[in-house]
């Protein structure tokens, strides 16, 4: 099939970008979206043109590299899907596909469809850990963890750090990302010890980094490739409020 592409091109972080139109023939329905972009790039390079820069790595929806905003959806069409799992069978012959980078003040564009998501790393450094050195750990069965809590913690921990939640949120809020980490660790006895400190520090960092605030639209949950629910945001709010009213700074 033949498709038309409308792709954001931007030479570097400082340059002014614009949309570039491409047409691609011979697209196979069984191709993945990324393979389609690869074949576009292959064609562009051979024509002596600049290929489209975009990020991808594992192609198994787990590394969180891919970050394309396709036709109004972070990671394109399909529920609980990362860009690498979108296949061209989701599109029709003659379709126009608009591809944009994640848009957020905290995720500046580096080139074309590549953004700098370092803000997530900074959020993690603000408290997304348990303060334990190698060698200090007690026996893993010393602290029992109920199956329900362990499973719930896993659901939160499944976050791949891709940033689709920020991209989908009208406020560019990172609340779901923070909520997932805070909830995961607050649900486990190992993480509970510094749960309050973690909630306070991560939220403060999130605000500092220029993310917007949560207005509970639920767009993040709808677009999250791992289906992380906004009930974790309620949990974060709970943790944060309790911490604010009890923890002396």
């Amino acid at each position: 099939m033949k498709i038309k592409l409308n792709i954001w091109k931007q030479a570097n972080a400082k340059a002014k970008g614009k949309f570039e139109k491409y047409e691609l023939d011979g697209v196979d329905a069984e191709m993945s979206f990324l393979e389609m972009l690869d074949s576009l790039n292959e064609k562009l390079i051979k024509e002596g043109k600049e290929p489209v820069a975009y990020e991808h790595d594992c192609h198994e929806a787990i590394c969180g590299c891919c970050s394309l905003y396709i036709n109004g959806h972070p990671h394109g069409p399909g529920k609980e899907t990362a860009t690498c799992q979108v296949h061209m069978r989701s599109f029709k012959d003659g379709d126009t596909i608009t591809v944009e980078p994640w848009r957020a003040k905290s995720f500046p564009v580096l080139k074309d469809l590549m953004t700098d998501r370092n803000a997530f790393d900074k959020l993690m450094s603000a408290g997304g850990f348990v303060s334990i050195d190698a060698g200090q750990a007690p026996d893993a069965n010393a602290n029992l963890v109920g199956k329900i809590d362990a499973d719930k913690a896993f659901d939160a921990a499944a976050c791949i750090g891709c940033g689709a939640c920020v991209a989908a949120c009208k406020n560019s809020s990172a609340t779901l990302f923070v909520a997932a980490k805070v909830s995961q660790l607050a649900l486990l006895p190992q993480g509970k010890v510094e749960a309050k400190r973690r909630a306070l520090n991560m939220v403060a960092k999130m605000d500092e980094l220029g993310f917007g605030s949560c207005t509970n639209t639920g767009a993040c949950e709808a677009e999250c490739p791992k289906g992380i629910g906004i009930d974790f945001i309620a949990k974060l709010n709970r943790e944060y409020l309790c911490a604010s009213f009890s923890e002396s700074e």
């Binding site: 334990i132 190698a134 963890v145 362990a150 995961q184 486990l188 993480g191």
Partner: peptide, 13 residues
């Protein structure tokens, strides 16, 4: 396993 559990890795239980 002890170390990872202490770090908050949610192993199946």
């Amino acid at each position: 396993i002890d170390q990872l559990t202490a770090q908050g890795v949610p192993f199946a239980r």
